[in-house]
């Protein structure tokens, strides 16, 4: 699919993942796409590669086990599914069948945070906390849809389990011109430089952070925005540098505030003994958020661009 790149315009991350898995399967005979009745992105793939497509029906635990079995035989299985079921229903299988044996299974999960629109059963507020606690698991959260392709490509030489958290996956903001940036596991990306404060964000909250930064320019405030797409492992040097250079740190994420990126960043500076002047976390509080669009819920729970801009201003007062 040929798409014209414009900053902030929409593209579906799910369809990028669907196109990329075909590209990979053509090149690598050990690539599989498997799903528990959530193969919306795989319509073309399953026609092109019916032998290397498995749909087990609604049975995520079994799917995780099958992924482990495929990987034990030298295959690279990509699990496609909705985050809450992939990360919670199959949590023990992810840990014991996949992570314990350190197998190169890829999890492509959609519906990060409160973007599902389907209510608390389908919201994904805990997934980063759960997945990052599994030994050997790598956790990435991606907002820019074109980045999904880059990460899937680089995953072919990555020997460990890898979780890719996407937002809803249907309408995702393009942030980075394809081919202009290099993404690496364990790295963050400075999407905007600034000296007054840093906003760390991941997934689709990076766009909100950039918009908040735009608003603050009018007040003469220069905010550094860091896309922390690699949550585990995390780019510690980038965190320490931002703490030292900008003093004020805000973490903005579509996840519970007490077990996501904010906790990771706080761990990094606390362990290093390098403290920010002020530290603030915005995200999902301890609540089952209920119905509404991602945008509406972000506003309701105080972690949208407006809330982010106010939080930065308050820190600078």
């Amino acid at each position: 699919m040929k798409v014209t790149w414009n900053f902030g315009s929409f593209l579906s991350a799910r369809s990028v993942a669907g196109d990329t898995i075909i590209e990979l399967a053509k090149k690598y005979p050990n690539v599989w796409a498997i799903t528990a009745d959530q193969g919306g992105a795989l319509k073309q793939y399953k026609k092109d590669f019916p032998e290397r497509y498995i749909d087990v029906g609604i049975a995520e635990q079994n799917l995780a086990g099958i992924a482990a079995g495929l990987a034990l035989e030298g295959n690279i299985p990509f699990i496609f599914g909705m985050i809450p079921f992939m990360t919670m229903r199959a949590c023990e299988q992810n840990r014991t069948a996949i992570c314990y044996q350190d197998l190169p299974v890829r999890f492509i999960g959609t519906g990060g945070g409160l973007t599902s629109g389907a209510g608390s059963t389908h919201n994904a507020m805990e997934d980063i906390g759960i997945m990052k606690s599994l030994v050997n698991m790598t956790v990435l959260s991606i907002g820019d849809p074109n980045m999904v392709r880059d990460i899937m490509l680089l995953s072919m030489t990555y020997p460990h389990p890898l979780y890719l958290r996407l937002a809803q996956g249907k309408q995702d903001r393009m942030l980075y011109e394809p081919g202009k940036y290099e993404f690496k596991i364990g790295m963050g990306l400075t999407a905007r430089d600034g000296k007054d404060a840093t906003i760390f964000a991941h997934g689709e909250m990076v766009f909100e952070a950039l918009e908040a930064a735009d608003t603050l320019v009018k007040d003469g405030i220069k905010v550094r925005v860091i896309d922390m797409y690699s949550i585990k492992p995390v780019d510690k040097d980038l965190v320490i540098k931002a703490v030292k250079e900008t003093g004020n740190v805000l973490v903005l994420e579509d996840h519970l505030t007490d077990c996501g990126l904010a906790s990771v960043i706080a761990d990094v500076f606390a362990d290093a003994g390098v403290y920010p002047k002020k530290f603030k976390r915005l995200g999902i509080p301890q609540v089952y958020a209920g119905f509404g669009s991602g945008e509406e819920l972000r506003k309701k729970y105080g972690y949208d661009k407006t809330a982010a801009a106010s939080a930065v201003k308050q820190m600078l007062e």
Partner: peptide, 24 residues
């Protein structure tokens, strides 16, 4: 062949091995 101990998980893993063998 496979680390086990958490009950009920072996068959799904065996299914993965069987799929792989069939395609190869």
């Amino acid at each position: 062949e496979c680390s086990t101990g958490s009950l009920g998980q072996g068959l799904a893993i065996a299914v993965g091995l069987a799929f792989s063998a069939r395609v190869k």
